[in-house]
Nucleic acid binder design. Structure first.
Length: 695
DNA sequence: GTTACCTCAAATGG
DNA sequence: CCCATTTGAGGTAA
């Protein structure tokens, strides 16, 4: 049993131990009503009617929607039947609902998606005025158009800023975004990828015009207005395609993949049927550090109810708090999202899905501010992958790398990288990979001084977004390729960073990959794929990971018979996911880029890391990769010999293996082929869309 | 019961 | 701290 926190009732209740008190008053727990909870550690049988004291000094009047008590208390996993569909189109429940333990359908699941045929035909700009979540048009005469002009001269009308319309895009323009995959995880990933591409582009636009906007909210609104979401409708239990450990940088991300619907509130709940009775139960909570929660333990969490703080008044047993109370009684699983501090991201916070919990007990107590709040103790369901434990572990290792067990070498790079690269083997007794020389830079065929130089800019201090005079921005299609945090905004055939011929300083934001690695990596022994690479840090999509260093090979000089070289990188194959990486800007009315032509235009670059290389040589292949490559110039201008830089394709939780798509050899597809003599290897990536072989 | 609003809370995020 | 912003729940009236 885990430690028990201070519990006002002093009871060490086990989750499965049914307390007589609650049996008597399942709908209005006495300990939440009476103020004398400090007096007895185990209250005697106090009979309280379900509609008990309507207003204690703390409890609010019983909501009118309270239903009578249900005698059954047995089912740990209650049978839930769908709520009768009230109206509208049926919900889009993921066809692969295998991991939904309870088929519960909330009333709110039946939102009518925005209809593209309903639009005003005169409205050629395809801007709808505004739609509610139910897809209905909302008339807000006080806020919109000419009527507000009339109103303004009558004065005394509350000053309201006109609402910006959310763009609804013609179906044919965004058909490419609506691809549906057989695997629910692929669908979730696809939605996340579109969201982030859209968000990054909105950020880039805002930065270049010196605006401060909420790109996360904007991107989310556009996604929802165009019905781009995964796992529509609410559910109890797991969400298809979302796994324990998955990380998020915005609340909106959890919203559009069906993990946690409210954009701000911490408690997501729904009405579900239990034994033919409707009951509002909590389905997901976010514990993000705003309240006095106890969230330091791996096995449990003490969560504070919502409300009260802004008005400085006692919390009420309504909304999320009521739902949590009902969940205590119904014993349903609740998803928990925790947060971790991350100084590297703007909000300083990362959310991660920590898996399923059940409420063990609840009580009320006085918060520091003096108001009475509800507390809920949630126990983590057994048998789930580690969540918080991973974060605690990696945090310790970062502070003290020698604390990492099974270390073979504390720094594989022998001090040549910014941050030591740990070499570990948790699996067997192999003492490390075969010998190679660690190099942080590519070995070219001729000295860089003899290569074509890179054109430099004349920016003072740093290059700024939106500066039309910056020649480096011009080389990158007019925009700086990285956001102010150094994240790649969109993938391009070639990126030109600022270099030695530029007048800007080393702090210029257009110098990202030339500064070397920034993450705590470890090279580790995998179970069945030799050595692999992973990171102790969480990695946000667009983050620079590392370069592929090695010896550059002239195409004509490739020894086609060298079958033993497993360490060749080549630019022949972009990868299906990578080619989708920029998608989303269509939602802003920008033309979509045709990535398939890009691969053909690209000059072939081949690097071998067989005898010399860096951490990149340990990155394994996956047909469902989390890393992409991007050619970058910075110390010379020879496009045919650009640096190969790797970036995170999606958010990558700590300790997740980093992989990229090697492509397939022997394919008829010219984009994929290229290295005919290399033997195709059986792929062990185990992703649902695995192609079976890679080159 | 259904529909079309309206109002409000919310552990966001700059 | 201040505040703009979004979503969904819940209420009300037709």
């Amino acid at each position: 049993m885990g430690r028990h926190p201070k519990n006002p009732q002093g009871s060490n209740q086990d989750a499965l131990d049914v307390k007589p008190l609650r049996t008597l008053a399942p709908f209005f727990p006495a300990h939440l009503v009476f103020d004398n909870f400090n007096q007895s550690s185990n209250p005697p049988l106090v009979c309280i009617t379900p509609f008990g004291p309507s207003s204690g000094d703390f409890g609010s009047p019983i909501p009118s929607n309270f239903s009578p008590p249900v005698p059954s208390f047995a089912a740990a996993q209650p049978q839930v039947t769908p709520v009768k569909r009230p109206r509208g189109r049926p919900p889009k429940i993921a066809s692969n609902g295998s991991n939904g333990p309870i088929k519960a359908t909330p009333i709110s699941a039946f939102h009518t998606p925005p209809s593209f045929t309903e639009m005003d035909e005169e409205d050629e700009s395809i801007f709808v005025t505004e739609t509610s979540s139910r897809g209905r048009k909302i008339k807000r005469p006080s806020r919109l158009g000419s009527s507000s002009a009339e109103r303004s001269d009558s004065a005394k009308v509350k000053k309201v800023k006109p609402l910006k319309p959310v763009r609804k895009v013609p179906e044919n323009e965004i058909a490419a975004l609506r691809v549906s995959y057989n695997d629910p995880r692929e669908n979730v990933e696809a939605i996340m990828m579109i969201f982030d591409a859209l968000r990054r582009r909105l950020l880039q636009l805002d930065e270049s015009s010196n605006l401060n906007g909420r790109q996360d909210l904007k991107a989310g609104a556009i996604m929802l207005a165009n019905d781009l979401k995964a796992n529509a409708g609410k559910r109890i239990g797991p969400v298809p395609g979302v796994e324990v450990g998955d990380i998020f940088y915005f609340r909106m991300e959890m919203c559009i993949i069906g993990l946690h619907a409210p954009s701000m509130a911490g408690i997501d709940y729904m009405t579900a049927k239990f034994d033919n009775q409707d009951d509002p139960v909590a389905i997901c909570i976010v514990s993000s550090g705003g309240y006095e929660n106890e969230e330091d333990d791996v096995d449990f969490l003490i969560y504070t109810g919502q409300g009260g703080s802004t008005k400085n008044e006692d919390q009420k047993l309504e909304r999320g708090n009521l739902a949590l109370e009902r969940s205590l009684y119904r014993k349903n699983q609740i998803r928990v999202v925790r947060s971790a501090k991350d100084p590297n991201c703007q909000t300083g916070k990362i959310y991660y899905y920590d898996g399923l919990y059940k409420i063990q007990n609840s009580w009320k107590e006085k918060a520091k501010s003096g108001i009475n709040v509800f507390k809920y103790k949630l126990l983590r369901e057994p048998g789930q992958p580690e969540g918080l434990a991973v974060w605690k572990m990696t945090q310790k290792w970062k502070e003290n790398p020698s604390g990492r067990g099974r270390v073979i070498l504390s720094d594989l790079s022998s001090g040549t990288e910014n941050i030591p690269v740990c070499l570990v083997n948790d699996v067997d007794n192999e003492k490390g990979p075969t010998h190679f020389t660690y190099i942080t830079k590519v070995k070219y065929l001729k000295p860089i001084s003899l290569m074509k130089p890179l054109q430099g800019c004349k920016c003072q201090s740093v290059c700024l977004p939106g500066d039309i005079n910056c020649s480096c921005a011009q080389q990158n299609e007019g925009d700086l390729p990285y956001s102010s945090l150094g994240l790649l905004v969109s993938r391009k055939p070639l990126i030109a960073e600022c270099g030695s011929s530029c007048q800007c300083s080393f702090n210029c934001r257009n110098r990202v990959t030339q500064k070397g690695i920034r993450l705590h990596f470890e090279v580790f022994k995998t179970r069945d794929r030799g050595w692999g690479l992973r990171s102790w840090d969480p990695i946000r999509a667009g983050t620079f990971i590392c370069e592929y260093t090695g010896e550059l090979i002239d195409e004509v000089r490739v020894d086609m018979n060298d079958e033993e070289d497993d360490y060749i990188f080549q630019t022949a194959y972009l990868g299906e996911k990578t080619s989708r990486w920029n998608r989303g800007t269509e939602l802003l009315g920008e033309p979509s880029t045709n990535e398939s032509t890009e691969a053909q235009n690209l000059l072939p670059i081949t690097i071998t890391a067989k005898s010399m290389g860096n951490i990149a040589r340990f990155m394994n292949h996956s047909c469902s990769p989390n890393v992409l490559w991007q050619p970058v110039l910075h110390d010379h201008g020879d496009e045919g010999h650009a640096h190969i830089m790797f970036f995170a394709l999606k958010h990558i939780p700590p300790m997740t293996e980093l992989t990229y798509d090697y492509g397939v050899s022997g394919s008829n597809d010219e984009r994929i082929g290229g290295f005919g003599s290399r033997r195709a290897k059986k792929c062990l990536c185990a992703s649902p869309n695995c192609r079976g072989f890679f080159g």
